[in-house]
Amino acid sequence: MKYVDLHVHSNASDGTMSPSQVVAYAASKNLSAMALTDHDTVEGVQEALTAAASLPVEVIPGMELSALYHEKEIHILGLFADYKNPQLLKQLENLRAVRSRRNSVILERLAADGICITAEELQASNPDTVITRAHFARVLVERGIVSNMAQAFKKYLQTGGKYCPKKETFSPELALKLLKECRAFPALAHPLQYKFGTEELNGLVAHLKELGLAGLEVYHSSNNQYESMKLKEMAVKYQLLPTGGSDFHGKNKPDIDLGTGRGGLHVSSLLLEDIRNKHSKMYS
């Protein structure tokens, strides 16, 4: 049996490995394929594809777009994306500018309380990275201000809290339109992490399905076996293909390993072939 990982982050967003390092690691783990799905960016895709050219692992160009639904941030994966699409690049650049303004506010609010963080610290030797709250959390841990990432998020980086304003982001309509524009296979990432009730989650999935959603992340590091089973039933109900991935971030999520999550995750390559076939039909 061959395995894949369709939800992977590099230091192009909030992971700690470079795209080429992630690809090499995926090859060392004997994965047949991985999707690079950095947050709101495709900056690392070309490097990953170049690295994969000499290794026995397929890299699927992708991203993880943020959108707002019922005042909660949701994430939509786009697999097999045309990562050079001009409209995609324009919209992602706009989103990057929004992130940059929000990050400036976080820096100002932290500095007002005596916690002065530099841009260089946040970038961690990658000036092209998309700065997220995880970058701030990492610096707070490195400075010894908090003992771990979870504490950093709880004390300093809660969205809408003292230091961290709410993030401007895409609507689900715009996110799905953009993914269609770049010929991507769209799938809702980690549906249970949004903490919606059953009715609201069904409402979300039904709404996204109407907008063009094609997949549901049934298998994820945060799910137990029962939860994955329930999500698989939901995928069948809405005629969505199941997908799965670890949500690997390197040292920023040290308990989650590439390909295996927290130890029990194994995503069959057969899921990928179903997605590949569906994707081909969607844009034929």
Results as ranks from 00 to 15, higher is better:
Asp113Leu: 10
Asp113His: 11
Asp113Lys: 11
Ile115His: 04
Ile115Ser: 04
Ile115Gln: 03
Ile115Ala: 06
Cys116Ile: 14
Cys116Ala: 09
Ile117Met: 10
Ile117Leu: 13
Ile117Cys: 11
Ile117Gly: 13
Thr118Met: 08
Thr118Phe: 02
Thr118Leu: 05
Ala119Val: 14
Ala119Pro: 02
Ala119Gln: 15
Ala119Ser: 11
Glu120Gln: 12
Glu120Leu: 07
Glu121Gln: 12
Glu121Tyr: 01
Glu121His: 04
Glu121Asn: 06
Leu122Ser: 06
Leu122Lys: 02
Leu122Asn: 03
Ser125Trp: 00
Asn126Ala: 00
Pro127Arg: 01
Pro127Ser: 07
Pro127Lys: 00
Asp128Phe: 02
Asp128Arg: 11
Asp128Thr: 10
Asp128Glu: 12
Thr129Arg: 13
Thr129Leu: 01
Val130Leu: 14
Val130Arg: 06
Val130Ile: 10
Ile131Met: 04
Ile131Tyr: 00
Ile131Phe: 02
Thr132Leu: 08
Thr132Ala: 12
Thr132Ser: 14
Thr132Tyr: 02
Arg133Asn: 09
Arg133Tyr: 09
Ala134Thr: 10
His135Val: 11
Phe136Lys: 05
Ala137Gln: 08
Arg138Gly: 09
Val139Tyr: 00
Val139Pro: 03
Val139Met: 00
Val139Lys: 01
Leu140Lys: 03
Val141Lys: 09
Val141Tyr: 06
Val141Gly: 06
Glu142Gly: 05
Arg143Glu: 05
Arg143Asp: 05
Gly144Pro: 05
Ile145Cys: 01
Ile145Phe: 01
Val146Phe: 00
Ser147Tyr: 00
Ser147Leu: 10
Ser147His: 08
Ser147Glu: 14
Asn148Ser: 08
Asn148Gly: 02
Met149Gly: 00
Ala150Gln: 14
Ala150Trp: 06
Phe153Trp: 10
Lys154Phe: 10
Lys155Pro: 12
Lys155His: 15
Lys155Ser: 14
Tyr156Glu: 05
Leu157Arg: 10
Leu157Val: 11
Gln158Ile: 13
Gln158Val: 15
Thr159Ser: 15
Thr159Phe: 09
Gly160Asn: 09
Gly160Ala: 03
